[in-house]
Design a protein around this nucleic acid. Structure first.
Lengths: 263, 263
DNA sequence: CGGACTGTTGATCAAGGTCAACCTCTGTGG
DNA sequence: CCACAGAGGTTGACCTTGATCAACAGTCCG
């Protein structure tokens, strides 16, 4: 049985998230722990995965911040998402020939590189893990849709506020207690490329929000002064992330049926 | 064995796509056919899935066009994607409590509603089906990233050209021979909400492209006059979609290992 | 024939981009 | 200890893209 192999603490932020929303069984957790053998680290600015690469592997971010971006020959670029500790960065690459976007470390990071066959193996042994991945992928897709809505239809204030709100919420999820001050290693340059604005306008917008007493920045520390107003600005929030539906929870390795026979 | 249950032709466009890129085994195809029992149809304008709904089911579009959109209380909306015949519209809803976006029929459509346990069952019996879904999800995610790049960093001409280019390519994939004239039931209103532009500006942009001899419209028929120039405008194309990597193909029900024992 | 819907065109306006100067840190080397 | 460089941030002036408003032209349909 997988359940009693020695478990070296794999990735606390991820576990915290999964426990809260998906409720994986002990076998699944053990299988997950086995995936995290190939630990690595990288300095800020390093490219963990380059657009066009064919080296197929999923990345699991354990500490630090990273981002996924796609850029054009002329220098324009769009940041697709910021990756926080506990984020699994596309297992989709397994079924794809070349990466369509790059992943860059924003700060120094620790991460795990998961090879395809390792994951496939784990999936076969602990089917509940598949559910976890599926859930993460679904949450991720919803987040991408929020970004698309933001960039396509919100104005500058809303986009910037939305980004700050999103990141604060995501940090809440992986911290044990929601902090009053958030550490966010974001240059305005990054915010601009994530929101589709220019650096200058991001500066203006942030100053505006600060002047109105919505938030306060100092160094890399962000404080949300008016949760209410920030949230109101960050429209597309819906309730995110959502827990796995009841019918699928408390199942451990069970995959969504009502009968109790394992596998 | 599933392989010899009678197969009522399920959804030709989907099969065409899968055969070309994923190469599913006979068991997988049979399992797929069994999923398509709950056939339905809907008129243009009908809402197939409403934002906030908790009814969890995947939709498989068999004929006609649909779209996924998300809208704000004040009327702004963003179209996330257009759904063409053969598109599977988020099996992600299975692991989610409420839909974060709506799916609307653009034309009259035929579609299949796949219930969660039906799919879960099929996945257990024909594991290769999981690979198909995984592949589709990965392609879909890449497409969403293209949209995000477009809306965030491309100008109006590039966005509109990009959309036309994308749709033409996708139509090619599900047709047997690439047509010289594409039927696209797109009002400029839809194009606007998909590209994050205003209707008026879409009109101007399209007229511009037409004046320059890049494309030609008449009624719902679109003709690409200069493939080269349209493609050049539609930057973010990468090569999409990508076939499944060799190591995973020709596997039928095998899931990415080299040994031949089934399951 | 009249209305609804979609597309086109012109005039005007505003959100946000661009360019450039300047400022504040922080770290580095003399 | 100071001088300096470089990165990131702020501010102002000006310009451009695309939004908005409004009028009008086709087309479809009862």
């Amino acid at each position: 049985m997988l359940a009693d192999t020695p478990v070296e603490s794999p990735c606390p932020p991820l576990l915290r998230r999964l426990r809260k929303f998906v409720d994986p069984g002990p076998d699944d957790l053990a299988a997950l722990a086995l995936l995290t053998r190939d630990r690595r680290q990288a300095d800020a600015g390093t490219c963990l995965l380059r657009e066009g690469d064919s080296g197929r592997a999923a990345l699991l971010l354990c500490s630090g911040w990273a981002m996924r971006e796609r850029s054009l020959p002329d220098g324009r670029r769009q940041i697709m998402e910021f990756l926080l500790p506990g984020d699994m960065c596309d297992p989709g690459s397994f079924v794809t020939r070349r990466a369509d976007s790059s992943v860059l470390a924003i700060t120094a990071v620790q991460y795990v590189r998961v090879a395809p066959d390792l994951l496939m193996d784990a999936l076969r042994r602990a089917p509940g893990l598949g559910l976890c991945l599926w859930w993460m992928a679904a949450q991720h897709a919803a987040l991408m849709r929020s970004h698309l809505l933001a960039v396509g239809r919100l104005d500058a204030r809303e986009r910037v506020a939305g980004l700050v709100w999103e990141l604060a919420r995501r940090l809440d999820l992986i911290a044990d207690g929601p902090p009053r001050v958030y550490r966010m290693p974001l240059s305005q340059d990054l915010i601009a490329d994530a929101t589709g604005l220019s650096v200058v306008h991001v500066s203006r917008t942030l100053c505006g929000l600060e002047r109105e007493g919505v938030l306060h920045r100092h160094g890399g520390s962000w404080q949300i002064l008016s949760r209410r107003r920030l949230r109101a600005l960050a429209k597309p929030g819906i309730d995110w992330p959502q827990a796995l539906p009841e019918s699928l929870r408390h199942g451990g390795s069970r995959v969504g049926t009502t009968d109790d026979t394992p596998c």
